[in-house]
Design a protein around this nucleic acid. Structure first.
Length: 437
DNA sequence: TCTGGGGTCCTAGGACCC
DNA sequence: TCTGGGGTCCTAGGACCC
């Protein structure tokens, strides 16, 4: 904790929804919900108009639809969000070189590295108001909420206090009085599980937390978390702004509209995800040693399996092969709702020539499929009268095993769900995919 | 027919090594 | 024959964040 309020936290208000309203004037003033629109989607961001109906982030889209049926439900345009975020981060970096983005819509800024020379509250307020209007200009009208305080924790708490489009500067010396009446869940890192443990110990406010001893809180929450919360409850926080944070892992996962039971389809989907992870590794100039798969069963229990290779790789076939092998270890007979592949233990170098003997013909760059591969039989739900279908990416590895994705519409239901189907036909060759002309 | 996707960090046990 | 003690790496799971 510093003696002056020189750490700022900036949070773009209802960010994804605000970008949509900016780009589509017809949505302004109306409830907008950005998130997954499939049967198992959740809300990423709800505009303030939608929040009035009780719609919240992380709520299932199904529930959001029930609460606010007239809202616009959108899947999200991440390129637009990323571009807008970049403009804001660039503005922040022009004000101080020490900017730590936390996500597309949030960042810490160290004002000690800015041109500010006075940190009294009126000066900070004036300066921050100017910055907030510049954010609005640079984003084409998106507002930000800002908090300024003597630590990351206080700045973050402060930015929440006057949302949306607000500013709070916490005067040094007043931090503990500000925190005491607040609920423990105000502290970043205290989620539902920790809050419940604390509640059972009779602790609900930060004042309650402050009143218990260090050994007691460590007994309740473990060493790292206990020590951390003991300090935060006293507004003690000496964390610095870290502008460059190294990526530790890269992963891709997907939740399917209906549970998967077909093992060869699961293998195909893992393969597709492995290709996507490998591509992202290569684009970042990274490779990794540990391959992990994530498998969420129909009852929501989540299993992971991992293996660590002798050397880091960014090779799609290697990652895919390891991922499929890891799946063999798991019982999926009751159905799988989510599959994922990740690579960690990252290095910024690649072991040369380790896989130089792999035939590129058996490892095609996958592209969208214009036509179903010859010999493919897709089994639609019984009785479905398919009037339209759209082919998604198709993949084959080895001799004819693979997966295709298709969106189909039936006469009864109209626009239908996305489904993936396994292929297991030795006559199919990898080359049959990606020939989109 | 609750419960996304992409991350980070922590814990705990076992293997292994000196 | 009772059993040391670290340190590091690996694996699995879980909490949490936006």
């Amino acid at each position: 904790m510093r003696s002056v309020a020189s750490i700022m936290h900036l949070d773009l208000d209802a960010f994804f929804a605000s970008v949509e309203q900016r780009d589509k004037p017809s949505l302004r003033g109306k409830p907008v919900i950005v998130g997954g629109v499939g049967g198992r989607g959740v809300v990423a961001t709800a505009s303030y108009e939608a929040r009035k109906f009780g719609v919240r982030s992380a709520m299932s889209t199904r529930e959001a639809r029930a609460r606010c049926p007239h809202a616009a439900f959108l899947t999200g345009r991440f390129h637009a969000y990323r571009a807008t975020s970049e403009a804001v981060m660039e503005l922040l970096r022009s004000v101080s070189p020490l900017v730590e983005p936390l996500s597309l819509d949030e960042a810490f800024v160290d004002l000690e590295a800015s041109s500010l020379t006075s940190f009294d509250v009126p000066t900070l307020r004036g300066w921050a108001e100017t910055l907030r209007s510049r954010v609005c200009e640079v984003t084409g009208g998106i507002t930000a909420s800002v908090g300024v305080g003597s630590s990351k924790f206080i700045a973050k708490v402060a930015s929440e206090l006057d949302k949306p489009d607000g500013l709070t500067v916490v005067a040094p010396g007043s931090e503990r009085d500000l925190l005491r009446p607040m609920h423990v869940t105000t502290i970043p890192g205290v989620g539902p599980a920790t809050a419940e443990r604390l509640r059972r110990a009779g602790i609900s406010t930060i004042a309650d937390l402050e009143a218990i001893s260090l050994p007691e809180i460590v007994r309740l929450l473990g060493k790292a978390h206990g020590h951390g919360l003991f300090r935060l409850a006293r507004a003690e926080d000496s964390r610095t702004i870290e502008p460059e944070r190294e990526t530790k892992s890269i992963s891709v996962e997907g939740t399917y509209d209906s549970d998967l039971t077909d093992r060869s389809l699961m293998a195909g989907l893992l393969t597709r995800q492995a290709y996507s992870v490998a591509e992202r590794l290569r684009r970042s100039g990274l490779s990794g040693r540990t391959v992990t798969i994530k498998v969420r069963l129909h009852d929501f229990t989540t299993n992971s399996r991992s293996t660590t290779l002798a050397a880091p790789t960014d090779h799609a076939q290697t990652i895919a092969g390891v991922a499929r092998g890891l799946l063999d270890d798991l019982d999926t007979s009751d159905g799988v709702r989510l599959l994922g592949v990740g690579v960690s233990g990252l290095a910024d170098w690649i072991q040369e020539d380790l896989f130089g003997d792999i035939d590129p013909e058996s490892d095609p760059e996958p592209t969208p499929l214009a036509e179903p591969p010859a010999g493919l039989v897709v089994r639609y739900p019984p009785g479905a009268d398919v009037v339209h279908r759209e082919w998604g990416p198709g993949w084959v590895w080895g001799s004819g095993r693979g997966v295709v994705t298709v969106r189909f519409e039936t006469a009864e239901t109209g626009s239908g769900p996305v489904r993936s189907f396994a292929i297991d036909d030795p006559d199919l060759r990898a080359q049959q995919f990606g020939t989109s002309s």
